[in-house]
Design a protein around this nucleic acid. Structure first.
Lengths: 140, 140
DNA sequence: TTGCGTGCAAAGGTTTTGCATGGCA
DNA sequence: TGCCATGCAAAACCTTTGCACGCAA
């Protein structure tokens, strides 16, 4: 068997996880994290941030959203809040004003069921972003 | 009134549009286009390809998909095939094997209606990509 | 002749990687 | 002491932009 690869606890890891806990459910970029610590005289290298987030995304603690290919990736810390993760929520991104909307809607679960039963496709509601136009922008 | 900005016809434009017509409905990247012409001794600069695609995306002739932020953008030529555009189709992307699936499914239209009526959100089925796991990968 | 389109190269931004150092166990 | 984690810098990658030249009208 392979052994788990992260046996060490480090100061940077603690700082990072504490910060992520404090912004649970909010969206952030790597640059946001870097700036946060830079202003606190306890800077963390971007490489370290990327490497931690990569692992956190892999184990489901953090979600990664591809909002726009030319701008930075958007992350969201979920932590061990199983409740939050048990309630599937979708993300709606308005192409016009850029607003990112959290949406917990049970009717959307029908999509998952349909895709699963009819097309054998297991939709990942956390990774998927719905693009379109929000009500505010549509009204104009 | 502003005048339209593309009054000139050029060889590169013709070549590009001809090629796009020949791969209508298929996915391609800027690199795919560049390689196609490079092998034909009639190379087109990537800047030109990007500039043309930008306009074609703007007028709806071409769709642009953000599949993965670290890899190149994925495009699809629709042309003047209004029929094709009238049939909303969705894209399913398998996170494991990378397969991109075209899916024309009327039941998915219910999502659009639901999002529109209940949440005032106009879903753009062309820009949205559903992430998840395909049947082949799920079976393993 | 006018001025848009093109191509090359450089720049811009995000993310990854190599390597020496530092810190945890 | 052993070895992972870190940080810096460089590299890699896609995309955009500046500028001079060529070509369409």
């Amino acid at each position: 068997m392979e052994s788990i690869k992260a046996p060490y606890k480090t100061k940077q890891q603690d700082l990072l996880l504490s910060y992520l806990e404090s912004i649970k459910g909010k969206h952030f970029t790597v640059e946001d994290v870097r700036e946060h610590f830079a202003s606190k005289n306890s800077s963390i290298g971007v490489a370290t941030i990327y490497r931690h987030l990569e692992k956190l995304v892999a184990n489901g603690t953090v979600n990664k959203y591809i909002i726009d290919e030319t701008s930075a990736a958007c992350f969201e810390y979920l932590g061990n809040d199983a409740c939050h993760r048990d309630v599937p929520h979708f993300h709606l991104k308005c192409s016009k004003c850029g607003t990112l909307i959290h949406l917990e809607c049970e009717e959307l679960l029908q999509i998952q069921e349909h895709l699963m039963k009819e097309h054998g496709f297991m939709l990942d509601s956390f990774r998927t972003v719905f693009y379109g136009t929000c009500s505010k922008c549509a009204g104009k």
